[in-house]
Design a protein around this nucleic acid. Structure first.
Lengths: 196, 196
DNA sequence: TGCCGATGTTAACGGCCGTTAACAAGTCTA
DNA sequence: TAGACTTGTTAACGGCCGTTAACATCGGCA
């Protein structure tokens, strides 16, 4: 039994897989899932289209693995940072994490935000659960920070805050990374204070 | 000379065209430009695919007209509201306008945000100019409100603010329209204060 | 009444898409 | 050295896409 069309990455991390996933993220972000063909993905890493099937079971599998990976990474570190006993520091740590991720992986953030509907069904549910859990980490911290607020309002506020933070890839402003990070941090902090 | 495949809406407003544009906005927003076929668009208004060519010169023309219309509406009313001599009131008016538009036309806002790259070239440039002009209305108001701030930072802040406001369609939260509008207004105001 | 423009339909086109088949070359090992 | 596994290629498939052609129907008007 070999890893011909492995669905889950079990063995040693295959560098070719990672290379394909990186190129696919860029293409999916720029042109949308349906706007990027298998041939495009292959060409982006110096291969022909059909060669992709040596590493993934199909186009949907590429997207599914990409979104699962993002959601897991966001959640894992999110849980870690939200654990700070001081809710103020926890919130700043969450903001720092999400902002760093968005600035370092603009394509991933874009795909994560837009393409969930194209993930086939067994995995879509898992991604949705991970995304929801990530949101709940933020909600829990905000609840500690200002209890008594209706959860629905807090949740809506967190979603709006993500909209602000994830806008980074669209506004390739003339600001350098640190300035942009600082701006986003300040704006998001203020916006969340505006919720209560 | 009839209006067989009119590019620009000149004569009386054709209700069929408007109907198609509305259905197309919904489909483009939900599945992306490349994810919705001409057959889908036709079916959504009770027609077959080829019937669309009686009203538009092609699929790209549908998208182009949609984005031009949105950009023009946003800018026209934006100019009007930004003209308030009191910059505080001008900002609140801009916020109110953009929030109302986003809450009333979530599909349009989504398409406007995502699908510019699929607009063919003569019109893409016009849309970009209109979008830029709209942003500059906001920047001008903010400049009056806190002069001395570098324009680059202000512009980045406006883009981030749009990210917050335009996140509405993605967060179908359990809040009713007025509560959601109030929340977005409060968060955006605070976020923009965080810029300075 | 007879025509004509407007607005539909179905049938057919060329092309690109995702995917599979068949084959080739390199590498590792018994 | 012979075989097997891995990873690539090119060729071919069925299908859907955007678009055009050819034809039907209907309402308004000379």
């Amino acid at each position: 039994m070999t890893s011909r069309t492995a669905e889950a990455p079990a063995g040693p991390p295959n560098p070719r897989r990672a290379e394909i996933l990186g190129a696919a993220a860029e293409l999916f972000a720029r042109r949308g899932y349906h706007g990027a063909s298998i041939g495009d993905l292959g060409r982006a890493v110096g291969l022909t289209g059909p060669a992709l099937y040596r590493h993934f079971s199909g186009k949907e599998a590429v997207l599914a693995e990409m979104l699962l990976d993002i959601s897991e990474r966001l959640l894992a570190e999110g849980v870690r940072r939200a654990a700070d006993p001081d809710p103020e520091r926890a919130l700043d740590a969450l903001l720092g994490w999400h902002i760093a991720f968005a600035l370092d992986n603009p394509a991933l953030i874009t795909v994560h935000e837009r393409e969930l509907d194209n993930v086939p069904e067994p995995q879509r549910h898992r991604v949705r659960r991970l995304q929801r859990a990530y949101v709940e980490e933020w909600v829990a911290v905000l609840r500690r920070l200002s209890p008594g607020l209706p959860d629905e309002r807090t949740r809506a506020g967190v979603h709006a805050c993500f909209g602000l933070l994830n806008s980074t890839p669209r506004s390739a402003a003339g600001l350098d990374r640190d300035a942009m990070g600082g701006l986003l941090h300040a704006m998001a902090r203020s916006a969340l204070e505006g919720v209560r």
